Amino acid sequence: MSDGLNDARAIRIAEIMTDFRNLQYYLSQLRATPTAEEYYLEGYSLLRQCTTEAQTILETPFAATAGTGGNADQEKQQLKSIIVDAAVRRFQCQRSFLRSHAGLRWMNSRNSILRGQKPNASHLGALQAADTTLRMELLSITDDYVESTIRTQDASQGKWLAEDPSLAQIQQILMTR
């Protein structure tokens, strides 16, 4: 029997998909133009990886689970399935978004250090510090942190979160993909 929450579920899907679309748009706008010597540096590789991840998320097919029972019950099961899929995709995009921001900070730091010059021995310490900062930032972008940023934002906006998947559910789904 339907519980009368299908409208709330549909609104939740729209909210998650709006966040997902915004993240996808941001990730599609990433542009870095490293020189041939810089192309394989950690930060530039990270930015390319984030763009590729975003495209892969878009290309992953949706595997809907069909509900059984009456129309309202089928709709309920389908909406729940869409919430889970959309939440997993948004989680993935949020992780790529946070990682890309770390890459952009690295790129901006590198550009500030070099000021249009070719890297030389006088830049070595500062460039190594920028690389270390990038690595530390990436280590801090854990699944727990990503999930926390999403939940905090949603909760602060008063969104209905009752049927959002837990981090453990998201991780389990990602392991099967």
Results as ranks from 00 to 15, higher is better:
1 M>W: 07
2 S>T: 15
3 D>L: 11
6 N>M: 03
6 N>W: 00
6 N>T: 05
6 N>H: 01
9 R>A: 07
11 I>N: 15
15 E>T: 13
16 I>C: 01
17 M>R: 14
17 M>T: 06
19 D>R: 13
21 R>A: 09
22 N>L: 12
23 L>Q: 06
26 Y>T: 05
28 S>N: 05
30 L>M: 03
31 R>N: 15
32 A>V: 14
33 T>M: 15
33 T>C: 11
34 P>M: 04
35 T>E: 07
35 T>H: 12
40 Y>P: 13
40 Y>N: 08
41 L>K: 11
41 L>G: 06
42 E>S: 11
42 E>A: 11
43 G>Q: 06
45 S>V: 01
46 L>D: 02
47 L>K: 13
49 Q>V: 05
50 C>M: 07
50 C>N: 01
51 T>M: 14
54 A>S: 09
55 Q>F: 15
55 Q>I: 12
56 T>R: 11
56 T>H: 07
56 T>K: 12
57 I>M: 12
57 I>A: 09
58 L>T: 00
58 L>Q: 06
60 T>A: 13
64 A>H: 10
64 A>S: 09
65 T>Y: 05
66 A>R: 13
67 G>F: 02
70 G>P: 10
71 N>I: 12
73 D>E: 12
73 D>N: 08
74 Q>V: 02
75 E>F: 02
76 K>P: 00
77 Q>S: 15
78 Q>V: 06
79 L>M: 07
82 I>R: 06
85 D>Y: 14
86 A>H: 01
87 A>M: 07
89 R>I: 03
89 R>W: 00
90 R>K: 08
91 F>R: 04
91 F>Q: 01
92 Q>S: 13
93 C>L: 15
94 Q>D: 05
94 Q>E: 12
94 Q>L: 10
94 Q>R: 15
96 S>Q: 00
96 S>W: 00
96 S>V: 01
98 L>S: 00
98 L>V: 00
99 R>K: 15
101 H>W: 15
102 A>L: 07
102 A>F: 05
103 G>C: 09
104 L>P: 08
105 R>C: 10
105 R>W: 00
107 M>Y: 07
108 N>F: 03
108 N>V: 00
108 N>L: 03
109 S>E: 12
109 S>Q: 15
110 R>M: 06
110 R>W: 12
112 S>W: 11
115 R>F: 01
116 G>F: 02
118 K>W: 04
120 N>H: 08
122 S>L: 13
123 H>Q: 04
124 L>E: 06
128 Q>V: 10
129 A>F: 02
134 L>M: 02
140 S>Q: 12
142 T>D: 05
145 Y>R: 15
146 V>Y: 02
149 T>R: 14
149 T>P: 04
153 Q>L: 10
153 Q>I: 03
153 Q>V: 03
159 K>T: 04
159 K>Q: 09
161 L>F: 00
162 A>Q: 09
163 E>H: 08
163 E>I: 13
163 E>Q: 10
164 D>Y: 03
165 P>Q: 02
168 A>Q: 09
172 Q>M: 09
173 I>Y: 07
174 L>I: 15
177 R>A: 04
